[in-house]
Amino acid sequence: MAWTKYQIFLAGLMIITGSINTLATKWADDSESKGRDGKVKKFNHPFLQAVSMFFGEFLCFLAYKLMFHYYMRRNENDEEKLPYSIKGNRKFNPFIFMIPALCDMTATSVMYIGLNMTSSSSFQMLRGALIIFTGLFSIIFLKRRLRLYHWVGMFLVTGGLVIVGLSDMLAKKTGESGESNSIIGDVLIMLAQIVVATQMIVEEKYVSGSNVSPLQAVGWEGIFGFITLSLLLVPMYFIKVGGKMFETNPNGQIEDAIDGFYQIFNSWEVASGISGTIMSIAFFNFAGISVTKQLSATTRTVLDSVRTIIIWVFSLAIGEEYFSLYKLGGFFVLLIGMAIYNNVFNGLCSNNTETLIITDDAEGEEADGAHSQDIIS
């Protein structure tokens, strides 16, 4: 069946905003600006960046409220005519999103630390480790039985991750992701997927049955994540740990948000990167939710792979990294593994597929708030 113009628009919006999200965050990381200590340095504030990401998710909550009141007035208070992204139960305890938000907060912060150490393409590819951990956790905690194609997909994804990591280890050129700390960044990104997998399992077990609007669910996680991490920035300012990872903060703190704001206001490049992160995550969540409903979760997985290609090509074009056959091979192994795991090849020919669809939101990516429709036993 041919796609409508609106569906093509949604697919394009998802690919573009998803790509911008990672590239904008990395753009801020690589930009130099004067901090509160008067020194010009790169923007190394992963926790402050995570706060901005959650603020972007909070914008989804505002969008939900505006859309809800608009469509209710338009449809004469008939909730049955509401769009999928805002239709759902409105009588629920918002604190059911607290634990998923804390998981999202932890994973996003760790991944942003890793992104500071490696390339944006490696960052995007290594997030494929989510499939492995979610598959294993679904067996342990949800008592699911994976089919053979799930195991084959997980095996190939593991192989792809090893190859991508190997490409970073072998890269030796200055400025490429293969610098000495890139492996640490790669490991942090993959470890963060354990937390993301935990988030998805918790949402599947305790949240999905509440039938909350996906856009509202993303918004509530954004609210809890934004408030919690903003409060944590205060003690982080006073905890001095030193070390190379935190040497750009004036006193070697875990996070110096004041220094970060100085750098944002002193550089249009940093400000543009942060603004891009905020706006792109909001539109990406909306587009991702809509694609899942209008088309399918399988299509969403395919589009997410296109996003990875765009990020890598752009990174090569601007000279952030150098072309590597190892990374190209690793990406294709990852791509095939994810496609097999998500039953994409069968899903493209049939709408009645039984899959365990995994999406990254993150940038909590994002979560669509209705994982019972994305993760099916």
Results as ranks from 00 to 15, higher is better:
Phe54Ser: 11
Phe55Ala: 14
Lys39Asn: 12
Gln49Pro: 07
Ala50Gln: 13
Val40Cys: 02
Asn44Arg: 14
Asp37Glu: 08
Val40Asp: 07
Pro46Thr: 01
Glu32Arg: 14
Phe43Asn: 00
Phe58Val: 12
Ala50Gly: 08
Ser33Asp: 02
Lys42Gly: 14
Tyr64Ile: 00
Ser52Pro: 00
Ala63Gln: 12
Phe47Gln: 10
Asp37Ala: 08
Glu32Met: 15
Phe54Ala: 08
Glu57Cys: 11
Gly56Ile: 01
Gly38Ala: 01
Leu48Met: 14
Met53Gly: 12
Phe58Ser: 11
Lys41Gly: 07
Leu62Ala: 13
Phe47Asp: 04
Ser33Glu: 08
Glu57Pro: 00
Glu57His: 10
Phe58His: 05
Lys42Gln: 14
Ser52Glu: 10
Lys34Gly: 03
Phe54Tyr: 13
Lys41Arg: 15
Leu59His: 04
Leu62Met: 13
Glu32Cys: 05
Pro46Asn: 06
Pro46Gly: 08
Phe58Met: 13
Val51Lys: 07
Phe47Gly: 00
Val51Gly: 03
Phe43Cys: 04
Phe61Ser: 07
Glu32Asn: 12
Val51Met: 11
Tyr64Val: 00
Tyr64Met: 04
Phe47Thr: 07
Asp37Lys: 08
Tyr64Cys: 01
Ala50Leu: 04
His45Glu: 09
Ala50His: 02
Val51Glu: 11
Lys39Arg: 13
Val40Met: 11
Phe61Asn: 09
His45Val: 00
Leu62Glu: 06
Ser52Thr: 13
Gly38Met: 05
Ser33Lys: 08
Leu59Asn: 04
Gly35Val: 01
Gly38Asp: 02
Arg36Asn: 14
Cys60Ser: 15
His45Lys: 13
Phe55Ile: 07
Lys39Ser: 06
Asp37Asn: 14
Phe58Lys: 06
Ser52Cys: 15
Leu59Gln: 03
Lys34Trp: 09
Phe58Glu: 09
Cys60Phe: 01
Val40Pro: 00
Ala50Asn: 13
Gln49Thr: 12
Gly35Leu: 04
Leu62Asp: 05
Pro46Lys: 05
Arg36Tyr: 01
